[in-house]
Simulated scan of single mutants.
Amino acid sequence: MIEVVELKTSTLYLNKDQTHLGRCILAFHTHKKELFQLSNIELHSFMEELSKVAKALQEAFNPQKINYAIYGDLVSHLHFHIVPKYENGRDWGEAFVNAPIQKKFVIESEYHQLIEKIKVQLEKEEEITW
């Protein structure tokens, strides 16, 4: 993962596997395993950040749908997978494969371009500061 930006209650990362263009992970700052462990204020803030990130991904990459997933079996730190999905693309109409056999990695400069596209959209959102 590559860090995109630190938010109030979480950190946004770009997934190195770009099988689904724009795939990111939003990780909660403090160590929690489950959503129910968050206070109401933490939960509200985390969900607000998730929504803003999803909107930024929608604006940056124009997917037909965004999938969200929380696993944590192997990484027991609360985080969301935010996965843009594209019609006629990989896994369309099904749950995305978290660890596909064939992954899509891009060159370093492309990761930076993807991050910049996301940041430009996040900057349009109120209350997000770097």
Rank of each mutant, 00 (worst) to 15 (best):
I2H: 15
E3F: 02
E3L: 12
E3R: 10
V4P: 05
K8H: 13
K8A: 14
T11Q: 09
L12A: 08
L12Y: 05
Y13R: 00
L14S: 10
K16D: 13
K16I: 12
D17G: 09
Q18E: 06
Q18D: 10
Q18S: 04
T19P: 12
H20S: 02
G22P: 07
L26P: 07
A27V: 15
F28I: 13
F28H: 10
H31S: 07
K32R: 15
E34K: 15
L35K: 04
Q37W: 06
I41Q: 14
S45W: 01
S45A: 12
S45D: 14
F46Q: 09
L50Q: 12
V53L: 06
A54F: 04
A54H: 02
Q58L: 10
P63A: 04
K65E: 14
K65I: 06
Y68V: 07
A69T: 09
I70R: 12
I70M: 14
Y71Q: 11
G72P: 07
L74R: 09
F80A: 08
F80H: 05
I82E: 05
V83D: 05
Y86H: 01
R90S: 01
R90N: 10
E94N: 15
N98D: 14
N98G: 13
E110Y: 01
Y111I: 08
H112T: 04
L114Y: 10
I115L: 03
I115T: 08
K117H: 11
K117L: 14
Q121N: 15
Q121L: 04
E123T: 07
E127K: 15
E127T: 15
E127P: 00
I128H: 03
I128W: 06
W130K: 15
W130L: 14
W130M: 11
